[in-house]
Design a protein around this nucleic acid. Sequence first.
DNA 1: GCATTTATTTATGTATGCATTAAATAATAC
DNA 2: GTATTATTTAATGCATACATAAATAAATGC
Lengths: 225, 225
Amino acid sequence: MENDTVKSRSSSHRAIEELRELIFSGELAGGSDHLESELAVRLNMSRTPIREAALALEAQGLLELRPRKGVRILAISPDDMREIYEVLTALESVAASNAAQLGYSESDLAGLASAIDNMDQALEKDDLRGWAEADDHFHSELVRLGGNTRITSVVSMMADQVRRARSMTLFMREKPHKSNQDHRDVLDAIRGGQADVAYRIHHAHRTQAQSTLLDLLDRHQLRSI
Amino acid sequence: MENDTVKSRSSSHRAIEELRELIFSGELAGGSDHLESELAVRLNMSRTPIREAALALEAQGLLELRPRKGVRILAISPDDMREIYEVLTALESVAASNAAQLGYSESDLAGLASAIDNMDQALEKDDLRGWAEADDHFHSELVRLGGNTRITSVVSMMADQVRRARSMTLFMREKPHKSNQDHRDVLDAIRGGQADVAYRIHHAHRTQAQSTLLDLLDRHQLRSI
DNA sequence: GCATTTATTTATGTATGCATTAAATAATAC
DNA sequence: GTATTATTTAATGCATACATAAATAAATGC
């Protein structure tokens, strides 16, 4: 993709997007410090938009402004993961329950269904990255259908952080067949308007995902990501 | 309070605090627009810290930056309240459950106990503002004891918004005796390490508070705050 | 040689200036 | 009188300059 010639959007937004990319790709590693001026040179803009982006990313919990020390990319510990999963579990389950209560039509639920299909297909092809992407899609679509914009934005923030950890553990765990079945069960509960069933299944699913991830982090001694 | 002479903290932080104050007091009403330059004059600083503060408050959901139109103070609708209470109910209940599991000593729980005492005393004196303050204190202390910093920060953000609505409805409702009893029951459950009881009672409490508030907003035709 | 003070460096926080561009107004055509 | 275009206005987004204060290095006293 070209981006030098095309002056796409505001520098501020570009800074947010590019810094996020650098953080998720690991180029700006968790725990590392970076001066505002260095980042400004790196992204070829002045300190002002860098600063605004840093403030925004700080609010999203991806980094921290430390006066005189630059911005510190936040490392995620297993305990952070526990915290994050706790929030995800609670809020996504509410979203699942709401989605079931809202009586969506089959076409409204097409996004969920196709996400599950994609997960199945990716799994058959041993395409774990593709599976992860489809899984993300299922979760974000589920939350969207829950119809609570606050939940949507909090969850999407936290899901970002999980994504960082999962990229490290994706190839350590066994294939997530169970996950796909859980999702199908949640979808069925939503179809049937069974709010409490959707809640319980999704809650159990997330709780399971949490302990799987925490076990992996523990077993591989990953104390910081 | 004096604040002109003492150059307390960074202008940026001062801007955040003062703008919050102006929003919560209603001086910057929900739905109103304000140019960055006007706010800069008003708070006696340049546009830069105002801008940074506006970005931070935007991330907290209190206002919105609308290019060329200034910052718009976000109005809260009854549906926003529903969303917010849904999040508060889910997360605070998890916090209550966690607090019960963490086996706190009586001295650890002193904050909760004294908050309840203060609520009782305020209610006897018909001091509703004092009651509300003590109630806030109970909730924030409960969440703190839950030991999940993500929950703490999300809840405190949302609680801010509720506070805006409650200041309008505080004197419309009957005296909240039930509330105090609920809190005592939650505290007892935490003392006894009964996580699921703490969860259920607090969940019911918040659900009740939500419908009380939404009823009031509806009955008084408060469509935007 | 160590401690304490002083000087120097440097990153931030804030102010300011300016180009850009959206909005508003005026002007022109029809 | 309406629609379209041109002009002006003005708020933002960004770059830049600078004062402040922290951190480091140098210098002085003992």
